[in-house]
Structure formats: C-alpha cells, structure tokens
Design a protein around this nucleic acid. Structure first.
Lengths: 376, 376
DNA sequence: AGTTTCTACGTAACCGTTTACGTGATTTTT
DNA sequence: AAAAATCACGTAAACGGTTACGTAGAAACT
C-alpha cells in the first residue's frame, strides 16, 4: 500500500517575505529580482558598500572618497544603470521633466509650425541636461475654466514652459503657487513678474513698417489679432511708432485670431473699402499666416501683390519662403527663443534666483518679393 | 530676577521622527506636512479608514463597500486630491505617461506640421484617459548609434508611439524588449510584427495618379524620398499600379529627403530634362512639401503650373490649401491616425493582446487647382 | 447549530532613491 | 597627548502610493 505523501500546507509563516537577508556579505550574485534592471542596490553589493554611498557618489554629493566615487561610477556604467526617476522624485528631489504647454487653438493653422519648432528646440536643449519634456495642450476655456495643469498637480515636472499668446494667466499662477519655476515664451504676464522669452516685437514691427515707408508707401494698414494678445499689442505699437514718426494716419484691423482665414477676412475689408476712402497700398500683418490670407484675398479681388498691394508679415514660417510671391517678413529666431527658455528654466530649477528675467531677442527683416521693393 | 527659561535641547531622542502615532484616532487635523498637497493618508484619516481602503476605492478595485467607496471619492474631490504618480509608478504600476517619438530631421521643413498635428491628436486622446505625453526626438545616427530611449530605460512611460518614416527599428526593438507596448504611426516594421497605424498609401497614390490619367496625362513622373521609407515605397507602388494598368512608362526620381528643397531639386531635373526626352506633363509627389518644391522649381524655370505641368501631392498639409495654385493632394486623416494610435496603445497597455494589429485608414483625393483638371 | 465561504476592511511589506543621523577612524587643534 | 573637529561611510527612516496577506463578522451552506 502506497504511503500517502504528507502534504504540508503551511500558511501564515512567522516572518513574511524573508524579512531581512540573514547575512549581507554572501549575497554576491543576487540577480533578477523582478526585472533585470540594475538598481542602485546592485551597484552597492557589487562593490561591498552601502546604497547611501552609491547614491552620494552618483549625485556628486560630498562625503565619498574620490577613489570610491570613481569605482562607483565605473560600476554604474558597466551595469548600464539608469536611475528610476519615479523613486528619485518621490523624496521631493527633481523629477527630471518639464512641461511645455501650448494653447490648443480651435482652428490651428500655419503658425502651428512656429510652436513645433520651439518645442523641438526646447527638447533638444533640455535633453542635453538629462531632462525630458512633457507636452500639454490646454483646451478652450469653455469646458473647465478652472484649468489646472494635471502635470503640475501630479508633481510630474520640475518646471513649466508656457508658450503662446493666450496663455491663461491663472495657469501660470497655479504653477507658481505650486512652487514651480515658470518661463513664458512669446508672451509675458502683465501684473505677475515672471521669467519670459520674447522677441523684440515692437522693434521688428517698426523696422518692417519703416521698410515700407522707405519705399514710398504712405497708406499702410495694420492687421492683427485680439488686442488682448501681447504680440499683437506690441507689434501694433511698433507700427504706430513708425507711422507717427512719418506723420501718417494709421489704419488698424483686429481679428479674433491670427490665421489664414482671418487674414483673408481682413484682406477683403481692406481691398473692398468704400470708394470714398483710399485703399491702402501696403499691409503689415501681425504674422505670416494672416499675411498669406491677406495676399490671397487680394488676389481673389483682382488686386496684384505686390503691384497693387505690398504685404509684409511676421514670424518667417517655412511657408513664407515658398509662397507666391515669397513673403517679406520679420524673422523670429524660434530655435534661439526655445533654447533660451530652456536655459532660463534650468537656471530657475537649479538656483534660487528670485528676480525674474525677461529675455528679448532681436528680429531680422527678411526682404523677399511681397513688399515690392525689389521690383521698384 | 527673571527666571531663566529652561532651554531644553534634546538631541537624538529615543524614537526618531515620531516613529508611530501613539493613537491614531486623535490625529484628526494633521495638516501641512511638507507641502499642503493632500495625500491618500489625509483622505483615510478624515474618513477613519485605512489607506489601503482608500487606494482600492479610488482605483476601482474590488473589496470596498459601495457606500464607503462613494464617500472616499467625495472626500478625494473635496480635498482636491491628485495622486502622486511617482509613488504610484514605483510599484511597477502604470506611470500614466507615454512617449511620442519623432525623428529629428536635419533640415526639418514643411511636413513638420504633419507630425505636430498627430502629436496633438495623440495628446488629446490620451489625456482623456489620464495619460500624459512625453516627447522625444531621436537624433542623427552619427553621434550615438546605440540610441536607446532614455524615456524607456528610466521607466518613465507605459508605452511608446513611434512616428515618422525613418524610425530606427532598433528603437522599437529596445522598447519591446523592455516589455513596453509600441505603436508605429505612418510606418510599419518589416520583420518584427508590431502594432501600427498607417494610411492607405498605395490606394491613395493610385487614386491620385488615376485622376491625372483620367484628365489625359500620359507622361506622369513620380517624385519621392528614400526607397527605404515605407511611405515612399508604397506610394510608388500605387503610382506604378496605375501606370501599368494604363500601359504607360514610368518616370521615377528619388531624393534623400522629402522636403521643399529636395522637391525643387527633383523639379529642376524634370523640367530640365534633355531635349531628346519629352518632359513630363504631370508630377505625382510623395508629399506636399516636395510637391510645393516641384511647383516652385517649375515656376522658376518658366514652366506654368498647372498649364505646363500638373502637380499632385500627398498629405494635405495646411499649406496645400493656401499655396498658389492651391495644391491638389491626397488627404491623410492625421487626427484620426493619431487618435487610433493612442487608442491602440491604451489597449495594449490595459490588456494582454498578443497579436499585433495594423490599422490602415483610407485617404481622400482633394482636387484643387494644381492638377489643372478644373481648368481643362 | 456548526462549519465553510464571502465580504470588507486593516496591517504592513514593498517599490528604488534620497538623506538625516550615527559612528568609528583619521586628522587637526590646543 | 588629550580633546575637538573632520571625514568616509553605514543605518534606517522617509517619500506616497499599491497590494499580499490576515482577520473579524456576516452570509451561505450542511
């Protein structure tokens, strides 16, 4: 008769989960815990030191002998160690990521590219310093006006870059209240002092208009977006500076957005102006998208560009160069602005600078065909 | 004489940092630990339950009475609680973020916008499900060919979306080896089966070429990018399908990139073709950027579009509509593709589907002016 | 009525790092 | 040479969640 095997089912053992390794010197080749990703502990065991020392060595903290520090770094490289950022950031240390926030327009047109270029410049600059970029688009105010950034409240990022003209200032405030560094790009807050990177809108606009003036234009119209947008206001100011100096009347049109479509709308208003009024001979548009729209509307109305109407834009998006006629415009150094924003944010993260800094980068007038000066 | 206050400086108390709260019922209003951010513990204390229960309640895990679960959720809302994702992901649970990887071209031109639109669609779809998007641009192979995604090795993301034609397949492999779900967009891997979202390149190209054929063109050239790019290969196949059916000869030009510049180069080759050969009467370009380049080169060579040369593109980027003449092109539903990619990735993350799925979305021929059929 | 199975919850280990604190072994100070 | 300061390192407590396991009480079976 076969013996029954004694099936011993032991539940609830005294010490749950091998509480502590009996000896910690014999555990040399402890491999493959959950995943085979090397942890800081693995480095420590290989070298026979404590995890604290390894952490200090890797983070350039004092209190580690130079020789040991070197060995730790070598071992880390050998094991192909990359720190688990979740664990690191849990202690309130840096998360190694920043947020890039851009407003989600209803009808995003050409100037999208503007922000994408910046985004990439930001990413490139930050990744050099080991940072990652999380993107967030903030929606229309309609649905949830309280619009707090989840990225911020979830503690995912060390800083925030806010791009675009209609950044809700409450957005910036909420980040600042969380104690996070904030840098605005292509915008700046009115009341709240904060870091920002802009281009010299006013000067660029003035240069563009002065170029038109120099070539004999006297009736120059301004086409812009909402007056709440800083870029529109500043560029209009530059336009007015130039016109005032020349002793000329201004003609101003504001649309609710700065797209090709609204540019066309503005263009139609300008060329279809009542006969009692003289139509403008030139238009300075607040950005290239609108300028292209104006050109298109003019063409559709049988008005030749630049023959009957000279057009100048702002931004120098890719399309400006290949449009017909190629668009004269004010070039913004988008990559530089993105890079500056990244650098300023890093500085804010790593130091305790209190006073905000506003970087303003110069612009360049790029003369192509649409202003007509080459033909004149 | 004033009594000296007994200044008791106690160092090294027996129990470091209040080891355990003596009683845990009296600690009702324990506020402001480090930051005032509410933790799961705060909710638990307010309700007099354990943190485990709160965690279960908030994560829809079983084992919580319906009534209590409701109260937990209410309290979480009242305290404005948002989970600390670092802590959550430390256990190997989800990180709540995915990576969007796009190759960083040397000279990024027009078709940038293509990926930006997708990126935004992805972000919108994923944020609805509480996910964040981290962007990563992978550089030229030159510097570090081993190109492993830090985002992946740092355990920051639950999945990866790889966009663009020249995604290094080793990139995908490395992510897959880490056990991460991967979805390719606008591309697909040859050997390695994996999820992907593409548009019907072949069919779209065939439709475009057939449109030209229908309007009488017989000498139709194909202009594309590197033959290693799937999109170029497939669109060329569609082009060849149509030409073969019509019994016509093919004319093919491949450039090393698909930009406006390379499009111009191709355009010059076509219009400057030796006189012994008949120049093409129409061009099908592999994307809009190249098509715009072809148009520009043609115009510079005194060749009218569409009069002397009909041009059709692919993608339907914003510029296509506002170019002169407006570009006839094959529209890709970029938003839809981004959304599909997001959905597929979520599915991969949340389920254990093994078999890869390839989504192919149909294209639409958008007839504008550059093909000349309206004028014919 | 006694035994088993659920159900709902509490307890505490655990994830991988950082860091306050403790401790011997040196070095510096008086 | 004894005392004090410094240095190099180890110990273990956080950080804020998730989750395996334990356990009362209620419900469902004999």
């Amino acid at each position: 008769m076969p013996e029954e095997p004694t099936v011993g089912l032991v539940l609830g053992s005294k010490e749950p989960r091998e509480r502590k390794a009996r000896s910690q010197s014999e555990v040399a080749k402890r491999r493959a815990k959950r995943t085979d990703k090397p942890r800081i502990k693995d480095i420590a065991e290989q070298l026979g030191v404590s995890v604290a020392t390894v952490s200090r060595a890797l983070n350039d903290k004092p209190g580690v002998a130079d020789d040991l520090r070197r060995r730790v770094i070598e071992m880390a490289a050998e094991l192909d160690f990359t720190p688990n950022m979740a664990a690191r950031s849990l202690n309130g240390a840096r998360t190694g990521a920043v947020a890039f926030v851009v407003h989600q327009h209803g009808i995003p047109v050409a100037n999208d590219q503007f922000y994408f270029v910046m985004l990439r410049a930001v990413e490139r600059a930050l990744s050099k310093h080991g940072y990652h970029v999380m993107i967030a688009t903030v929606g229309e105010r309609a649905d949830g006006r309280n619009e707090e950034l989840r990225l911020v409240s979830e503690r995912r990022v060390d800083g925030v870059i806010l791009a675009g003209p209609d950044i809700n200032s409450s957005l910036a405030l909420s980040a600042i209240q969380h104690g996070l560094p904030v840098v605005l790009v292509d915008n700046a807050l009115e009341r709240t002092p904060s870091d920002s990177v802009v281009c010299d809108n006013r000067d660029g606009a003035r240069a563009a208009v002065e170029h038109l003036l120099f070539h004999g234009h006297e009736r120059i119209a301004f086409v812009g977006g909402p007056t709440t947008w800083l870029s529109t206001r500043e560029r209009r100011a530059g336009y007015e500076d130039a016109m005032r100096e020349a002793g000329l009347e201004t003609m101003v049109i504001h649309e609710e957005a700065t797209t090709v479509t609204t540019g066309m709308a503005a263009g139609r208003k300008l060329v279809g102006v009542p006969h009692t009024l003289l139509p403008p001979s030139a238009v300075f548009a607040v950005n290239d998208a609108m300028a292209l729209g104006v050109m298109r509307a003019a063409r559709e109305a049988g008005c030749r560009v630049p023959g009957d109407l000279a057009v100048v834009g702002f931004d120098d998006i890719d399309m400006a160069e290949i449009s017909d006629p190629p668009l004269t415009t004010v070039r913004i150094a988008k990559e530089l602005m993105g890079e500056l924003a990244a650098r300023q944010l890093l500085e804010l993260i790593h130091t305790e600078r209190q006073l905000p800094v506003k970087s303003v980068v110069a612009t360049t007038l790029v003369v192509r065909m649409s202003c007509g000066c080459a033909a004149k």
